[in-house]
């Protein structure tokens, strides 16, 4: 069936062209958001309101997940390390894995599904109920008034959430290994402190979370703004936000890690 082959190749080509097209639209939208950010910086109240919705309301899930991830890391790390008699290095293991990787990455994944999806749904719904059009007719630019504050709030909250996640994780690891199992507290902290470097580990983790914050919120606001103005359109866009930003987080993490830790132990 050569016809079927041709049509499936055409289909693939069509999809590729379509996604490149969409990427172009998204990039233009992203630049537009940056250009129109003046309003949100001048009226910071708008950003504070969104900080509440993206940051404060994500706190619970971040704190609880961080605690559990740290506890699991402590437990698993202890099980393995004690075979080599170096269970005091468990603090190092917990802290390094959290600060370098798990903190920024897992916090960003949680952030995408908690706050990112909410941003997409909210903007998509505003579009579907003509609120954005109404705003435009009232001579107020919806990108400046609705999109930009949400974008900046997301960018600001992400590093804070990642740091809170890491701290809760370290605390969870401490709880399991020191308090429950009984690893020596002094060596737990001192090994951790001598192994974790401020510039290479903590600063790089912080930079990572900033990148993730920009990526997740940019995807979330674009999907919301670009959603077809129907119920199915908005729900589809919400799903796409979570899927796309999760993939982008993991891909970006690889690239950033390769850049940051290249050639260093």
């Amino acid at each position: 069936m050569p016809n079927r082959i041709v049509s499936s190749i055409q289909n693939i080509g069509h999809r590729v062209i379509e996604s490149v097209w969409r990427l172009g639209v998204a990039s233009r939208f992203f630049i537009l958001v940056l250009l129109k950010s003046g309003t949100s910086l001048r009226r910071f109240n708008l950003v504070i309101r969104e900080l509440y919705f993206t940051g404060v309301l994500s706190l619970i899930i971040i704190v609880v997940s961080g605690l559990f991830v740290g506890m699991v890391l402590g437990l698993q790390g202890y099980e393995t390390l004690q075979k080599y008699g170096s269970e005091s290095a468990v603090g190092t293991l917990v802290a390094l894995s959290l600060v370098r990787e798990l903190g920024p990455v897992v916090a960003a994944l949680l952030f995408a599904s908690r706050a990112g999806s909410a941003i997409t749904a909210e903007i998509g719904l505003m579009k579907a109920t003509e609120q954005l059009a109404a705003m435009g007719m009232m001579a107020v630019d919806p990108i400046a008034r609705v999109v930009a504050p949400r974008f900046w709030a997301g960018v600001i909250s992400m590093p804070f959430l990642a740091a809170i996640f890491s701290v809760m994780g370290v605390f969870g690891g401490y709880l399991v290994t020191v308090v429950f199992i009984g690893v020596d507290e002094g060596s737990f902290w001192s090994q951790m402190q001598s192994a974790v470097d401020f510039r290479f580990d903590i600063l790089n983790g912080f930079i990572k979370s900033c990148f993730f914050g920009v990526a997740v919120t940019a995807i979330a606001v674009f999907e919301g703004y670009d959603a077809p103005p129907t119920a199915e359109g908005v729900s589809g866009a919400t799903t796409r936000t979570v899927v796309t930003s999760s993939l982008v987080i993991l891909g970006l993490d690889f690239i950033l890690t390769a850049f940051m830790f290249r050639g260093v132990s």
């Binding site: 719904l125 003509e130 609120q131 059009a133 009232m138 001579a139 107020v140």
Partner: peptide
């Protein structure tokens, strides 16, 4: 557009603002 008003089919009120803030929206913006 500041000289125009438009009433959308289902009102298109801003769902995150109260009635008062909806009406005050343009005054505060412009």
């Amino acid at each position: 557009r500041r000289k125009m008003g438009m009433l959308f089919q289902f009102g298109a009120l801003f769902t995150d603002l109260s009635v008062f803030d909806n009406v005050a929206f343009q005054m505060r913006e412009h």
